[in-house]
Computed example of a mutant assay.
Amino acid sequence: MTIATWPAELPKPERATWSSLLQEARLRRASDAGPAGYRRRFSNVAKVVTLSVLLDADQRARFDNFFEHDTKKGSLLFRMPDPTTDGWALRTSGGSLLLTSDDQPMLIAAMWLCTFGDQLPTETIVGIDFRKTFTVEVMP
């Protein structure tokens, strides 16, 4: 089975709506006195990321097609460039850019394996554009 890939023609997620949290991996133990204790429930958990993309009409159609057909309405895994690191320039510990032999900056390539989360895409209109807001669960 082939894993779908986030369409390259879609813009990067907006920074203003970004939020990220880990799924709860602990199990709370009640105690008769004192603070509650915790133990691990799972060895690893997904990261839940809420994000939005601002799309023109063509990009909106591409997003809808990706969601409806490529991920079967959000039920299949897909690969997505990590918006927090993919495409960023590598730097030395002193802050200088790392360059290739032809003096181009070396870029980080980072992909997530994820699925659409509990909040499926919702759409709002912003002028002549469309904002899609949704969550993805990034696999560990």
Rank of each mutant, 00 (worst) to 15 (best):
D70Y: 05
F42D: 15
F78Y: 04
D70L: 06
L55H: 03
P35R: 13
F78M: 00
D32T: 11
D32A: 11
L77D: 10
G74T: 02
D56Q: 09
Q59C: 02
N65I: 10
H69K: 12
T71F: 00
S43C: 14
F78I: 06
R39W: 09
R40C: 09
G37F: 08
S75A: 11
A57Y: 13
R62W: 05
G37T: 11
F63I: 06
Q59F: 02
G37K: 13
S52P: 03
P35Q: 12
V45A: 03
L76A: 04
R62Y: 03
S52K: 11
D32G: 10
K73H: 13
K73V: 09
M80Q: 01
P81L: 00
F42A: 15
V53M: 08
V45I: 14
P35D: 12
F67I: 00
D64Y: 00
L51R: 05
F63T: 01
Q59W: 04
D64A: 09
K73C: 09
L51F: 06
D58A: 09
Q59E: 05
R39N: 12
Q59V: 01
N65L: 14
R79H: 02
L54G: 01
D82V: 02
G74M: 01
K73D: 10
T50N: 12
V49G: 04
F78E: 01
